[in-house]
Structures are given as structure tokens and as C-alpha cells.
Design a protein around this nucleic acid. Structure first.
Length: 319
DNA sequence: AATCTTTGCAACCGCAAGACA
DNA sequence: ATGTCTTGCGGTTGCAAAGAT
């Protein structure tokens, strides 16, 4: 049995939406809510494909859509996120409230891709200048960064199998198994596995972050590393004022420390959550981890999580 | 002013993943 | 285990507006 087509194809309006169609769609969704796109056109009295209705709503009619030009700040964010994620427009859009993936994709294709490409050429010709100015705007990156040939993070979220430990880069890459089904110490219990919020990435290589963004984050390293020197004391994790942690996971109260002592990983699952915005400091983090663990008999378990609006590296120090 | 070319953006299409029966 | 449905994603297309000749 074949698959039912998404719409009848005959007698269906195509092309630009009229104001009347927009109103019908908005009124219908206002009353009935989003979803059931296939049946929506018939119920709403629209001669449109359900897919078309969905697209029109998501990209144009939604009340939280932000209108107007992309700001310089948004543009810089798009460039940075594209550098890390590639053409993952929905992920990028998730970091720009009110902007749609389609809008960002179009903006990239019509404005930024050419500019970034131009920058790349200029960089190779005039490495000292950077050549990042075009159309009167300057992108926020340091000269000499190859914005076109970097690796991007493939962000497919799957089960928790292994992680790449970053500080072993110069020796031999170690893939530590933290398979929740076999490793009782794992911070990913089987119960957590059932919760989609505990999906980890297997193909997420932290080393991929140690590229241009890190180079952009100058002026941090020496100072902050010293400030983190005593972050682990007697096997207990202490927070430091300037440690770049999420507000959700920074505070470690007595019960959390006790849970770490008991190796009760379900209770300490949020020891550190380093949000994506601070991952540019991964070089610092790498150094921090290395110093922290050296000579203390500690191991580290880490994973990274991806949601559309919530990226972070999760790290649990294990005594 | 007329015609051609380029640009920008909305919309479309095919595919894939996850949910569900 | 399998097939279908729903939803979402990313690449591509079509067209109107703007610019160039």
C-alpha cells in the first residue's frame, strides 16, 4: 500500500499567499491551535497543501516572528554559529529569537556566504588586513581565520555511548565508554536514557571546538586558569566565581557534593553545564581539566547535549 | 521609456526521523 | 517487526522588484 500524498495536488492554490488566505489560516490556528497540518486546509476552508499552511504559519504568520533587518549582532551570531554548525539553519535560528530558519538561510545565501567567501580570499591575499569589511559591515573575527574550511559539529543527538576526552589530543585519543547499560558509574542511567533530555552526542568531538572561535577569545587564558587552580579540593568540586558555567549548574551545594562522594551520578548529573556561548573558552577548559585531574586520582566523564535551544557540554568529575 | 539582467525572498519539493498502530 | 503518518529540515525554484543598459 502506497503512502497517502500530503495533499490532493489538484485544485490547490500555489504561489504567494493572499491576505484573505492568511487571515483564514490565522483565525483557524487561533481557535484550534497548530498541528494536524494535513487536515487543516480542508477544515479551515483553504485550497492549500497542509505543508504550505505549516510553512506559511511558521515562517510568516506566527505572532512571535521578528520583522525588520537582521542586526549587526544577529549577523555576527549567525556567522559564528554557522562556523560551528554548518548549514543547520534550524539550530542557528533557535539561537535567534523571532527569526526563522528560512530567513536565516536566505540571509546567509544572499549576504553572508558571499562576504565570508570574499573574506577568505582577501585573507589569503592580505593576511595582515583580514579583509572582513564589506557592505559597510565588519564581522567580529580575528584576521587570518579561515571561515570557509573549518570542520563543523555534526549535531545529531543519539544515545550515550562514548565521548572523546579532549586533553588527550596530543597523545592518543581515548574514547571512554559510558554506556549506561554496562557502566554503573555512568551519569547516564537507563532511566535517564528514557528521557529525551538526556540524549548525548556520540559524534561530538570537543576538539572540533578548538578552532577559530577559541582564537577569537583572546585575553582569558592566563588569568582564568590561575583562578580555577583549586576548583577540585579533596575530591570535591568547588565553584569559582569566574568559572564560565551555566547558572543552572554552577552551584554545588552540600547534598551534591555528598552525592558525588557516594558516586550517586543521578544526583550529580548537573555538576557543570557549560553553555554553548562559553564553549569558545574550550582551550581554557581543556587546560583547566588537565590541571584539575593531574595527580588527584580523578577521572572525568563528559557528554554533550543538543537541543534546539540548549547546547552544553556536561562534565562530571568522578573521584 | 523600454528591455534585459540581477537580486532577494517566499514558497515548494524531496527526504528523513520519530511516533504510532 | 513493519508500514504509515506527521512533522521538520535543507536544498532549490520561481517570481517580483530593483538595477543596469
Amino acid at each position: 500500500m502506497g503512502r497517502r500524498p500530503c495533499c490532493a495536488k489538484v485544485g490547490i492554490n500555489r504561489g504567494a499567499w493572499s491576505a484573505r488566505e492568511d487571515k483564514i489560516l490565522m483565525d483557524y490556528i487561533k481557535v484550534h491551535g497548530e498541528g494536524k497540518w494535513r487536515d487543516l486546509p480542508e477544515r479551515a476552508g483553504l485550497k492549500r497543501c497542509g505543508k504550505s499552511c505549516r510553512l506559511r504559519w511558521l515562517n510568516y504568520l506566527r505572532p512571535d516572528i521578528k520583522r525588520g533587518n537582521i542586526s549587526v549582532e544577529e549577523e555576527e551570531l549567525i556567522v559564528r554559529l554557522h562556523k560551528l554548525l554548518g548549514n543547520r539553519w534550524s539550530l542557528i535560528a533557535g539561537r535567534l529569537p523571532g527569526r526563522t530558519d528560512n530567513e536565516i538561510k536566505n540571509y546567509w545565501n544572499t549576504n553572508l556566504s558571499k562576504r565570508v567567501q570574499g573574506d577568505k580570499i582577501n585573507d589569503s591575499n592580505e593576511p595582515g588586513l583580514g579583509g572582513l569589511e564589506n557592505k559597510g559591515r565588519k564581522l567580529d573575527c580575528k584576521p587570518g581565520i579561515d571561515m570557509g574550511s573549518h570542520q563543523v559539529i555534526r549535531t545529531k543527538a543519539v544515545g550515550c555511548k562514548k565521548v572523546v576526552v579532549p586533553w588527550q589530543q596530543d597523545k592518543q585519543m581515548i574514547h571512554k565508554s559510558i554506556d549506561p547499560g554496562r557502566d554503573s558509574e555512568s551519569p547516564c542511567s537507563s532511566a535517564q536514557q528514557e528521557d529525551s533530555s538526556f540524549r548525548f552526542l556520540t559524534d561530538f568531538d570537543i576538539n572540533e571546538l578548538l578552532i577559530s572561535d577559541v582564537i577569537c577569545s583572546e585575553g582569558h587564558q592566563g588569568k582564568q586558569i590561575n583562578e580555577w587552580e583549586s576548583t577540585v579540593v579533596d575530591g570535591e568540586v568547588q565553584t569559582q566565581p569566574d568559572f564560565p558555567v551555566s547558572e543552572h549548574g554552577a552551584k554545588l551545594d552540600a547534598s551534591t557534593n555528598e552525592a558525588i562522594r557516594r558516586e550517586d551520578w543521578r544526583s550529580v548529573e548537573q555538576v557543570w553545564q557549560l553553555e554553548f556561548s562559553v564553549l569558545k573558552n574550550m582551550v581554557i577548559l581543556e587546560e583547566f581539566i588537565r590541571r584539575t585531574l593531574e595527580g588527584r586520582g580523578l577521572t572525568i566523564r563528559s557528554g554533550s547535549r543538543l537541543d534546539y535551544l540548549d547546547y552544553y557540554i556536561r562534565i562530571v568529575i568522578v573521584k
